[in-house]
Design a protein around this nucleic acid. Structure first.
Length: 743
DNA sequence: GGTTAGGCTTCG
């Protein structure tokens, strides 16, 4: 029975809860003696009719424990208004409340000893599995087969409505621990199906690996005994050769006609038709076969619609069909994936969707994830913590570093004004990029000379080349913009932000957290053996904890910038706070006030009036950056891209800004650009295509642009006409090139 | 109170 200690005076509506009896039906659940004097809140319980109401005349309802339930203890301490006392009390209490019984709660039946029609707990090594798939009923269904030292292979079928309640199996050899499965006979052998109160925990099957539970339960019950069992199963499985030598095959080893598992990162995706989705993935290795070329409209592509030439050589286009296309909808670029039973098809002739008429070259390899779940066909997102993802990231980072060096070399040579046009400049290839208008203005194109002489309107259409752009370093083009007061400022660099964090964590004044928060702590793993784990103070919204959404929002104290970024992977929204004047407050607004994944959000110093209020997420309202900003009195600043383009045609040159429609122009949001190296590379690549360094004028593509003219004051206070590129977007003839030149 | 699936490639 998980019990979370709760400090602080706030409490949810207790009126009816306090009178409903709680039935502890979980084995060994025995904490009633510890909480009897406190007010408790229960979550994750099922409300059921009391079968004994006629006899005992007590409350007509019971709370029944099912699966991952929590009891929250509200310690009504008289010193609650005195902050330092609360903290002391809570640390003493947490030791007390988290204490577990010494004897193991669960007994496990060996797979050779299963009897029909029993509810049991079992351990097993996975020898076959399917990722959860939608059944014809209400649930997702997982199919797996497990074995143990008794050498019985037992099929298991798990039905759960929620994906997170299913076993998190990454590969054969993984070890599962299942509680409350029932045995039944099917086709002459015994099998297992989940039943009420079912829970499952999965472990890596590698001998010597950490015994890290994979589970959606926040408090998996893990005893020393469990570790022993896992380790015994691991070494037994190793001796039986049950763990595959490699979890998956890299793209460099993909063989025509073969089915294989692939561990990769999703870079971009696009729907192709109603039954097919394109996934653009890479794993840092290069497939020796030329890869299938798939053409998709840039505006349906989620993620960058183009990559550098070097990167394109490593990207595989995977077509996923039917049920997998449906699953692919929830994937996001950047996700790490394992794709099971992927098929490499040689010489595929036809490509669906837009490219239906395009015939692929003979020696191409196409990757297909066919419909259905035969042979475990499917895919899943792997967590960043998984060793296979860590390995993948090392390979990918190696490539990105080399790519960065190459791009820097190009830029440096340009800075030195070395005019060189090598006979095989990569820019010739890249010149497939162009730009076109997406506006509906009824305006005839005009020359730049005409436009300057006869400035007759606000909107102009021009056909021009890009002769230069500023700034060349993309991070200098990224700004923060306040739409309320139109303040535009630089994004502070990490050193500045890091020093604000370290400043804020100095000294620990006593303080009382707001009444609506629940206080606790979070452990931040150290990034090496030398830096140990650190425990940091956090404050959560009681309401969210009560609704079991505690990962939605966290107010974090005393962290470094780096720790905050690391924690941001596990929490939806992190707001760094500091203690000051007896209370909590936000950090200086030069620092991001909110971390969300890899994204950071800043507040306008002029327009914000920071306070610490509870975000309002009642009912179905979804917590997002706006809700958080509003609660904190912060005027959210937008990320924007601001560039100055020099345009030319045969008649004249013209300076134009790219700002308001920069997102449309690059098909990338500035917010994504700020958070993603890939998006930055994609923009860099696009600009170099439009304006090749060292390239001649003749190589530069012609761009159809829409320009909007407006009056603005320059630095000297003079009013003058400015131009902005609007309603225009970069296009590219082919997105995924096929490479006829295998390495 | 209780369905669904019950491995076993391949349309694209």
């Amino acid at each position: 029975m998980p019990v979370l200690e709760w400090a602080g005076p706030g409490s949810p509506d207790q009126a009816h809860l306090s009178r409903i009896p709680i039935a502890f039906i979980s084995t060994g659940a025995n904490c009633a003696n510890k909480i009897i004097k406190d007010v408790v809140a229960a979550s994750g319980f099922t409300v059921g009719k009391s079968p004994t109401v006629q006899k005992d005349k007590l409350h007509p309802f019971n709370l029944l424990l099912s699966g991952d339930a929590c009891i929250y203890v509200f310690r009504q301490t008289p010193s609650a208004s005195r902050p330092s006392a609360v903290i002391k009390e809570s640390s003493r209490l947490s030791k007390q409340v988290f204490k577990r019984p010494k004897t193991p709660k669960y007994t496990y039946v060996k797979l050779g000893d299963l009897k029909p029609k029993c509810v049991v707990n079992v351990y097993g090594v996975v020898v076959f599995f399917k990722q959860p798939f939608k059944s014809r009923g209400t649930d997702f269904c997982s199919t797996l087969k497990i074995t143990d030292q008794s050498n019985q292979n037992i099929s298991c079928t798990i039905f759960c409505e929620k994906l997170e309640d299913h076993p998190k199996i990454f590969q054969n050899g993984d070890i599962v621990r299942m509680h409350r499965v029932k045995t039944q006979f099917y086709n002459g052998s015994i099998m297992l199906v989940n039943t009420h109160g079912f829970s499952v925990v999965t472990f890596d099957g590698t001998v010597g690996a950490d015994v890290e539970p994979r589970t959606s339960s926040r408090f998996p019950n893990l005893e020393q005994e469990d570790r022993r069992t896992v380790e015994q199963l691991r070494s037994w499985a190793a001796s039986e050769g049950l763990l595959p030598a490699v979890p998956s095959i890299p793209l460099s080893d993909a063989q025509p006609k073969a089915y294989f598992n692939l561990t990769c990162q999703l870079l971009a995706k696009a729907p192709v038709d109603s039954t097919c989705t394109l996934l653009r993935v890479w794993d840092g290795t290069r497939c020796p076969w030329s890869l299938l070329n798939v053409i998709v409209e840039p505006d349906v592509m989620e993620g960058p619609s183009m990559f550098s030439k070097e990167r394109e050589k490593l990207i595989a286009n995977i077509l996923v069909y039917d049920n997998h296309a449906e699953f692919a909808r929830q994937l996001k670029p950047g996700d790490f994936l394992r794709i099971y039973n992927l098929r490499a098809i040689p010489g595929s002739k036809k490509v669906p969707g837009l490219a239906g008429s395009q015939s692929a070259e003979e020696d191409h390899l196409a990757f297909h994830l066919h419909g259905g779940t035969a042979y475990g066909r499917g895919m899943r997102v792997l967590p960043e913590s998984s060793p296979d993802v860590q390995q993948l990231k090392r390979v990918i980072e190696g490539f990105l570093e080399r790519e960065d060096e190459e791009i820097d070399e190009v830029n440096d040579s340009e800075l030195l004004e070395i005019a060189c046009t090598p006979p095989e400049s990569p820019s010739v290839e890249a010149a497939k990029c162009s730009a076109e208008r997406r506006c509906s203005h009824d305006v005839q194109p005009e020359t730049l000379a005409d436009l300057k002489q006869r400035d007759r309107g606000r909107v102009h259409h021009v056909r021009v080349q890009l002769s230069s752009y500023e700034p060349h370093r993309l991070h200098q083009a990224l700004k923060l913009y306040c739409s309320k007061c139109t303040l535009m400022q630089e994004i502070p660099d990490d050193e500045v932000v890091a020093s604000l964090f370290s400043e804020a964590s100095k000294g620990s004044e006593s303080f009382s957290p707001p009444a609506w928060t629940a206080s606790g702590s979070v452990e931040v793993p150290g990034d090496s053996l030398a830096s140990p784990n650190r425990t940091l103070h956090v404050h959560l919204s009681s309401q969210l904890v009560y609704e079991r959404k505690s990962r939605e929002l966290m107010f974090l104290m005393g962290s470094t910038l780096e720790e905050t970024c690391r924690l941001a992977a596990g929490y939806r929204h992190i707001v760094p706070v500091r203690s000051r004047g007896g209370g909590l407050e936000l950090l200086d607004l030069t620092a991001p006030f909110l971390f969300r994944g890899r994204k950071r959000y800043y507040g306008c110093k002029r327009c914000s009036q920071p306070t610490l209020k509870e975000p309002n997420v009642e009912g179905d309202a979804v917590m997002d950056k706006k809700v958080v900003a509003e609660a904190l009195g912060v005027q959210l600043m937008q990320s924007v891209l601001l560039m100055k383009l020099e345009l030319r045609d045969a008649t004249d040159t013209l300076e134009a800004f790219l700002w308001r429609d920069a997102e449309l122009f690059f098909s990338l949001s500035p917010e994504d650009v700020a958070a993603s190296q890939e998006a930055q590379n994609s923009i860099r690549f696009a600009l170099e295509s439009l304006c090749p360094p060292g390239g001649s004028v003749g190589q530069r593509p012609w761009l159809d642009l829409c320009l909007v003219a407006y009056e603005a004051e320059d630095d000297g206070g003079q009013r003058r006409t400015c131009y902005q590129v609007c309603h225009s977007t970069i296009t590219r003839a082919t997105l995924a090139r096929s490479d006829p030149d295998p390495a």
